[in-house]
């Protein structure tokens, strides 16, 4: 039976600057209800502007923190979460849903035959670091499972932030272990890339990266199509919404579901895993 995951980042905050948060949360609630057993991956920068305890309470919790969403949420931290010392409000709010070891920001779990890894792009992200050793060992122990990695800053992007170096070492390890999908936020638009290797070469066994920074923070349009990064297949900066992944053990499908706006992006059919 197929498993369903939803993913989105960059959500809640003062309504002037985060006009899409409530509508996107309402959509997520509806989608979770209509897809029993599904879960939500939040991609960081969940509570603007500084990820404080007050901002989590005032902005994130009312829409995203209730019983319909929070119990099935898995988190990764963003740069705004680290505006507080050690991202403590983030770790306190999510508890075990941010990993068993509070403060690390990296962990993994299994779900319906898929392996899911949450990583921290804000610290400890270089080759040889404790996080990279965890990632190597974790993926080596799950060689046969199709895998999703989710972390805040995208390695490649055609939006306001462009590319980020922080996850560079992640990509080397993820690619070496044939990881299927990388999910990221940080840039406030949607973008889907073709499978590629860490040097941007198209590769049918490479990583497919999605940017889904469309959870509520004001959108920033990506560059026009002729100026986008190599292997960018679809991008939009007009529509708030979430990514839906339908996962089978031998294939996956994606759909960007709009909450405010009309952009949609869905796979033509099942896409084979890299195993």
């Amino acid at each position: 039976m197929a498993s369903v995951l939803f993913a989105v980042g960059d959500m809640a905050g003062p309504s002037d600057d985060n006009p899409g948060s409530s509508a996107t949360a309402a959509l997520v609630k509806s989608l979770l209800a209509s897809n029993p057993g599904s879960a939500l991956l939040v991609l960081g920068d969940n509570a603007y502007l500084d990820g404080t305890t007050q901002e989590y309470a005032d902005h994130y919790a009312p829409d995203w923190g209730g019983s319909a969403i929070k119990p099935v949420t898995f988190a990764c931290p963003g740069n705004h979460d680290y505006h507080t010392t050690g991202a403590e409000p983030y770790f306190t709010f999510f508890g075990a849903q941010a990993g068993a070891v509070s403060g690390d920001g990296f962990y993994s779990f299994d779900r319906d035959g898929w392996h899911i890894v949450s990583l921290n792009t804000e610290k400890d992200f270089r080759a040889g670091s404790r996080q990279l050793r965890f990632l190597e060992e974790d993926l080596a122990a799950h060689r046969t499972a199709p895998t999703i990695a989710f972390f805040h800053r995208p390695r490649f992007g055609s939006g306001g932030h462009g590319d980020s170096d922080n996850p560079e070492a992640f990509w080397d390890v993820l690619f070496a272990h044939h990881v299927e999908i990388a999910l990221c936020g940080h840039a406030h638009h949607y973008e889907r890339f073709a499978q590629q290797d860490p040097d941007r070469r198209p590769d049918r066994k490479g990583i497919r990266q999605f940017i889904v920074g469309t959870g509520g923070r004001s959108l920033v349009p990506p560059k026009p199509p002729d100026r986008r990064k190599p292997n960018s297949e679809a991008a939009d900066g007009t529509t708030f919404g979430v990514l839906k992944l339908t996962l089978d053990t031998s294939s996956y499908q994606w759909e960007f579901v709009p909450a405010l706006g009309s952009f949609v992006d869905r796979s033509a059919g099942p896409h084979p895993v890299n195993r």
């Binding site: 740069n79 680290y82 010392t85 050690g86 991202a87 403590e88 509070s102 403060g103 804000e122 610290k123 400890d124 992200f125 270089r126 170096d165 922080n166």
Partner: peptide, 21 residues
């Protein structure tokens, strides 16, 4: 400039790592 960004990110990373509990 990319090289500058990478180096400055090292400052941010060191702060985040040092400030973590």
């Amino acid at each position: 400039i990319e090289s500058l960004i990478r180096t400055l990110n090292g400052i941010v990373e060191r702060y985040n790592a040092s400030a973590a509990r």
